[in-house]
Design a protein around this nucleic acid. Structure first.
Lengths: 344, 344
DNA sequence: TCGGAAACTGTAAGCGCTTCCACTCCGACT
DNA sequence: AGTCGGAGTGGAAGCGCTTACAGTTTCCGA
């Protein structure tokens, strides 16, 4: 325990008593507010130091009617993906004196309850679209806490932050079609998240624009298992595809792996692309063509947008879309040395 | 704002007024404590619902003298590594009604200050050894908050949780020496973290046990850049190594990559091993031999150990060491199909 | 030398919740 | 019929902090 005279942690009263000053002055010294004499400042600092005084934030929060903390709700933390988001978020928040309370919903028994609880601890909440269903988000809105959505379609009155998906997917698909592929398969379930639905939308649009019927997607979860399975199954189809446009890198890598195991050449016999640019994408051979999202930046921006709402500095909702970057490698068969392209 | 009659969020008083009961009863209903009539319960539930009442945690914390929150201090969140730790942590904490407040120190202007601030918000703190220097940790101890160290050498009075390193490193090194390598190089700076120093210690011990002088480590940061650089430099040495024992997978992957670029065969001309078993390790070819740490489990356990201290359920310090798993793949030249080994 | 402003300090009233204690019912025992 | 005990409820005292307000000093300039 922080050493009050007794075993309990020291309070502002203990510090005041030891410094022979009132708690008001102690508070002023510690917060750096209001005028204080040099002598008082020194006495308080010393007393606080000697007692190992750590102010109780709950008491301050109650008094100032503010938590100085943000809530962040993520679906999970597997992969580098959400880690980067969180890192960007925490960095910005930390620099602006806000603590970050994190809640992970995937596998959680009662997300609704835990998110409501979160709302009582923070000044505002950032929710990743994959973390909560719509009704829970609406529930959360009713609490009145400022809310910022990440990778979620805009909702009226809410800020949102996401990275561009449809245009990059269209661009990527065009590239493959230009290169001569005639039977692309989109791998991943568009219903699994907003981002994936946008990626499929771009894929479909590229087809539609050249008068082709957009092929039905292969509706599988975005996991390595599905990727491996698709990689195996795909050859045995009546009309086997000559390209796999995968909804993320896990799918793509696992598919490539299983194709290689069967002796199918990538990119010669079939091309493969992913999404996210995980580390493995640049270490496999052939290198995986993929799309990089600015996750850290996304986190930073979400934190900033939320803070603007919390402080009341901005009241109109904003919907930000960040550019992604197409990363061309050998798996798509069209890469030129030094090739790369940004979107939007 | 949650709809009180005015614009401000509803408080327990608003709920009480609407339910025509005292705040004491409202509190009892909401917390499920003490005896309450069915009728009262119903009235309170309805009023709370109508007002969108969310209890202010700061007020509860103040009253119950507990935050019901844990602090988690991590160096950063790059790679899957800390993400998994955090995920395991959050899962356990969530299941036991504890929120988690996270602080990332890498790149932080004043970790000391932010960690002290954290101490005022939570009931106890888990610190990853790479996140804070010793003096800051000791500073933190003085606050009296329960403290659990992850991947840090045990300190008297503190709990600690880490995964086994030295023995697995020794085992791995032995395997390479048995296989006929005669000039292994340890890549990575043992001074960069406790874990790495242990890995080098195991590496050195394997040599010592057979009467060999342990080679000096190649003291470089644990980054892809260093790995690439070492991969290039290593051949030009007077006495080029026939094996690289890398302190983590990033180093190993980058080294393998640069060796391949130079036409050096792995594992035939030189063997390579890593540490952590990141996703890329199983997608490169040859597959990277590495050591898997139970990060999720480590997180869970840290949360549990901290909670035991917070509740006072345990007062004696514990130092847990979790077993790692050697993952044999082709990069070390010694893998047999289905080969694998656990340690400790 | 004095009045008044400026600088500093203290008193006390909350912030919204929990919980001890006292009180009122009521049904169940003697 | 009178008593006892438990269930249900409310009053009120904090939890540790901030801050409005008032009070006390100090230091000017006139």
């Amino acid at each position: 325990m922080a050493s009050g005279t007794s075993g309990r942690p020291a309070t502002i009263y203990d510090v005041a008593a030891r410094a022979k000053l009132s708690i008001a002055t102690v508070s002023r010294v510690l917060q750096g507010t209001g005028p204080v004499s040099e002598k008082a400042r020194a006495r308080v600092d010393q007393a606080a130091q000697e007692l190992n005084y750590v102010p109780l934030r709950a008491a301050r929060s109650l008094a100032v009617q503010r938590h100085e903390a943000h809530g962040l709700v993520l679906p999970d933390l597997a992969g580098p993906f959400y880690g980067d988001l969180l890192m960007g978020y925490e960095r910005w928040a930390g620099e602006h004196g806000q603590s970050v309370v994190i809640t992970v919903t995937h596998g959680h028994p009662d997300p609704r309850r835990s998110v409501r609880d979160l709302a009582g601890r923070v000044d505002g909440i950032v929710v990743h679209g994959n973390a909560l269903d719509l009704s829970t988000i609406q529930d959360l809105r009713k609490t009145g806490a400022p809310l910022v959505l990440v990778a979620h379609p805009p909702m009226t009155g809410c800020d949102s932050v996401r990275s561009e998906s449809a245009a990059s997917a269209e661009q990527l698909t065009n590239r493959l079609l230009d290169h001569g592929q005639t039977n692309l398969l989109f791998v991943g379930d568009p219903a699994s998240s907003y981002d994936v639905s946008e990626r499929y939308a771009g894929f479909a649009r590229a087809h539609a624009r050249r008068g082709l019927a957009p092929p039905e997607p292969e509706r599988v979860p975005l996991t390595e298992e599905s990727g491996a399975e698709v990689g195996e199954r795909v050859l045995r189809a009546t009309n086997p595809p000559d390209g796999l446009v995968c909804a993320n890198d896990e799918l793509a890598l696992a598919a490539m792996n299983s194709l290689a195991a069967q002796g199918i050449g990538v990119p010669d016999e079939i091309v493969v692309t992913g999404w996210d640019d995980v580390m493995a994408a640049r270490y496999v051979s052939p290198g995986l063509t993929t799309v990089r999202q600015p996750m850290i930046e996304l986190g930073r921006l979400a934190a900033q947008r939320l803070h603007e709402r919390v402080t009341g500095e901005r009241t109109r909702a904003r919907n930000d879309v960040l550019a992604t970057q197409l990363v061309l490698r050998d798996s798509c068969g069209t890469a030129q040395p030094g090739d790369a392209a940004g979107t939007e």
